[in-house]
Design a protein around this nucleic acid. Sequence first.
DNA 1: CGGCCTAAGTGCGTTGGCGCACAGACGTCC
DNA 2: GGACGTCTGTGCGCCAACGCACTTAGGCCG
Lengths: 245, 245
Amino acid sequence: MPSCTSSQNRLLSALPTAEFEPLSAHLELVPMRLGEMLYEPGVKLQHAYFPTTAIVSLHYVTGSGASSETAGVGNEGVVGIALFMGGDTTPSSAVVQTAGHAYRLEACLLKREFNRGGLMQQLLLRYTQALITQMSQVAACNRHHSLEQRMCRWLLLTLDRVLSHELILTQELVANMLGVRREGVTEVAGKLQRAGVIRYRRGHIAVLERAGLETSACECYAVIKKEVDRLLSDVQYRQSTSRVA
Amino acid sequence: MPSCTSSQNRLLSALPTAEFEPLSAHLELVPMRLGEMLYEPGVKLQHAYFPTTAIVSLHYVTGSGASSETAGVGNEGVVGIALFMGGDTTPSSAVVQTAGHAYRLEACLLKREFNRGGLMQQLLLRYTQALITQMSQVAACNRHHSLEQRMCRWLLLTLDRVLSHELILTQELVANMLGVRREGVTEVAGKLQRAGVIRYRRGHIAVLERAGLETSACECYAVIKKEVDRLLSDVQYRQSTSRVA
DNA sequence: CGGCCTAAGTGCGTTGGCGCACAGACGTCC
DNA sequence: GGACGTCTGTGCGCCAACGCACTTAGGCCG
């Protein structure tokens, strides 16, 4: 059974005690190491993951090995929507992008909970819609916005899922997420650092001036953030009237 | 009440009579004109549309006016998933890309039907997962594949949603869908025509050699198609054991 | 403290796709 | 059948991003 910490999963913490209690015994707080693969294309999912401090990246790897992120999942969501959507698997994979923890729940239990049709079902569906927004936004973004814009968007989204203003990731990792060359990331990072917006050293990126990122990012960041807030807003309301998960 | 025609909506026709009958009185077969906007960003949806012969394009328009398709919907799906997902609206818009017909259903009736939790709910969820696959695939595709590959992918997907081998659309329209210049489309189209794969004249594209498109398309076409088939396969099974909608 | 692995910086030629500006060419409609 | 509007063809110069090859530098670990 999970203990209460300051940083929790928004979906879980939105459940009223009556719905949460029966689940809690089956939630297992597991560590997630950087690079760990939660599921691979075409393989049936065994578990769903509700991140608390970890961030998971959903991405697709092309036949020629190129890859790019289609969406990220932090403590606002859940990894494994294919379980309740009915497909049990997907053509994309899920990889831990920022180490941390997540609550793990067995596949069949998530399905059962979803099919009970309670608040949990609503939450999962609303979150799924937010995820859809993110994916379609990224699709358009990849087509129309510059690397600098996309990278700022990505940093902001990641920052929102983390407590601190420092991200632990190499430029190479960022490049993989955005589906671009590592050199391109180096260039943009250098520019941002010279502008005093970020500072970095070997695998660490500190954000000094969030506003700077926001002006350099494309509209996509705001669209995605706004949509998550809108769709999960009553979630936060309920959180205060129930117990902290 | 809908009449029976040869080309129907796969989701509707998958319903057993017992589930379809109560709905049928509220399904209205409406014509869809090219360019018609079914919904705009941020506006609450009034109806869901189950295309029969029409094709609808979901796309996002950036602040600067650039646009690109994030997914297409033909008779395999439904336009308006935000209704049952709980958001009621989305940041993207839906535009008729190929004229034809669709069954229209009032928003509240779709929601009610979904919440009954019957087969319709399962179908809608499974279709939504297929849509998610399409969007995330397009996101990666936009990042890694050439215009020629993407255009062939798009033509194939469109072709699959149409009875004939002739598509009625201008190169400009194709360019808007792919989010590229019209001239780029002209160039690729010329190349394909010289290779004998397609033939076109002012707003018409005839596919002469489907296999040619398939070899020039990226893997994304196959991934999307396979996933739709997988997720809606038992749909087709049920179709034969029930009545044709 | 020194070595070594890995992250980050740099240069350079190449290229896919963009933006713009026209020149045909088809077909529809009076 | 002629005129006009729309669709298509083509030719630039331009630029972001790519691929590759290599150097510099951090920081961990023995």
